[in-house]
Design a protein around this nucleic acid. Sequence first.
DNA 1: TTGTAGGCGTTATCAC
DNA 2: GTGATAACGCCTACAA
Lengths: 344, 344
Amino acid sequence: MSKPLTNRKEVAKLAGVSEATVSRVLNGVGPMKESTRERVLDAAKRLNYELNAVASSFARGKSGNLGVVLPYVPKVHLFSTYYFSELLSGIGEAVRSKGYGLLLLFRDPSAVYDYASLYRTQRVDACIVLGTNTAETELEGINRLAEERLPFCVMDQKFDNPLVSIVAADHEQGSYDAVKHLISKGCQRIGFLNGSMQYSNSWDRMSGYLRALEEAEIKFDESIVYQGNYSRTSGKNAAEDVYRDLNELDAIFVGNDRMAIGLMQGLREKGCRLPEDLKIVSYDDSDAASLTEPPLTTVKVPFFEMGRLAAERLLALLADKENSEPIISEKLQTELKVRKSSGS
Amino acid sequence: MSKPLTNRKEVAKLAGVSEATVSRVLNGVGPMKESTRERVLDAAKRLNYELNAVASSFARGKSGNLGVVLPYVPKVHLFSTYYFSELLSGIGEAVRSKGYGLLLLFRDPSAVYDYASLYRTQRVDACIVLGTNTAETELEGINRLAEERLPFCVMDQKFDNPLVSIVAADHEQGSYDAVKHLISKGCQRIGFLNGSMQYSNSWDRMSGYLRALEEAEIKFDESIVYQGNYSRTSGKNAAEDVYRDLNELDAIFVGNDRMAIGLMQGLREKGCRLPEDLKIVSYDDSDAASLTEPPLTTVKVPFFEMGRLAAERLLALLADKENSEPIISEKLQTELKVRKSSGS
DNA sequence: TTGTAGGCGTTATCAC
DNA sequence: GTGATAACGCCTACAA
């Protein structure tokens, strides 16, 4: 029933050619007479025939799939879904235009994931890894991938290993821009609510924050750096400390929109007026950023383009064998979107 | 490089058994002596061998993939991403636990999509179709699938064809609950901002709205039914008309959170106070619903469970051949989440 | 309980 | 330009 209703042999018979010719026509390879081409195409259409993708993959020794690996925790939205859906859309665009399949793979973040197995079992020809971090178990998995020279790419997370391919936005610059914007608004005491340091991009944000301060000759004060984990709840929790320090602060830079939203909720519950009492700039420009009251000034990250870029590069790499240079593209431009939360 | 490093033959040789025995052990079928089983497993581990998924699929004549088809429009978030990511998570959960693959398929919503081709080319064994509507081109594609008795399931969209499998929430009841809640708050003049009527669930919402009114002996007034398309922008646009009718209205029921958010923005820009000037209940309980000011009273839809249910049913159907009964499950419970936008 | 062997539908490498 | 034909790695009757 769900078997192909027909196969190459039938088409060959109907068209009066050999099976090999059918293959050539359908794959568009090798020389062929226009007339036979038409005859074969016609026969295929009459029989409602299309190439069997599985058989084809088998013969080629390639699955034809690009894998996208994501951490999966039931009931928890590890990603802001904005991030996730933009990346996926970008990857999807690239994959479609190259005729590849997009295989979604959920991994249990608490266990060592055997990435290499995906290739060994031929489920994917290449893959993009989302949401990795620097935990020991993660490092091990990723490093093994790199050492086996398997085609893969990590998103938005740097590894020391130069063999690890990566596509990432320039969060150092993005953060610098964000903080500089606050400084240009006359802020001097600028706090920082950062996310978990197990992600390299959290370190990048810290660097950008420091550079902006330094350039403005503002002394770094560790006591106004707060620690969250990119969740809304952690932002709300931070409101406690931020509120306590409120008269020390002109503004605060927050590592992502979700935390900023939590923080704003928390502060407002304590009676803060925003942005009068505290200016805020955050990060991501997710859908929610323009919904809050006041709307968030935030750093827009080109997730869609990042996804597309990673996928395109990987597929290009697959096309041109030999080349197995790691993909390194970690300076994608961000853009500051100015809204009311930063004062204006 | 990305080829399997070894194959069944090697394992058989090392274990001193036939290839067939290796297969049997690795697939856990047929009787086998514990000692040979161990020997084979040991050999496999020593050679770092795993079954080649492509070859396996080929031999079985099944791809081992569940397809998820989604409309794809560049730059447009057709789904609220909440809907999308919850459904996908649910599907992912089912698929993983059954050892299937999850293949993401993007379709161009402006063209007739040849769903059957996915099966013909053996890319998927079954699929879940998201975001269909009643456009002629869609109907045609879906009906063809049904007539060929291919295993598939449509989410949240009803078709007249009894052969079409569907999993959907009970939006009639959800809407009834929403409107009844408003009535219980003392509202009599309740407007309705509905989404596009090309989706059956828009009709269901209308039915629920009507039933609640009728039960309370409130006369239906077409002049306070507004038309949107589920986008934030359409909600904002509707603010014009709603504002004009404001003294005719106690409350408004809105077809989804996104429109409600747009509507609230629009109304506030005109100087409305919410919920004092207008009570609002909306639909979906997306992440954003609790972020707005005031937070939205909204109807929570079990997207995760819907995804999981659809996937589980399909995979069960694949497992037990013979059975090709359409899956019909269109009454999944919704739940009203009461927040400030509806008054209290 | 295990081995033998045919078949799955292509691809790709030869000849012709 | 086109036709034979050997892989590809595994599954599964059937035989032993």
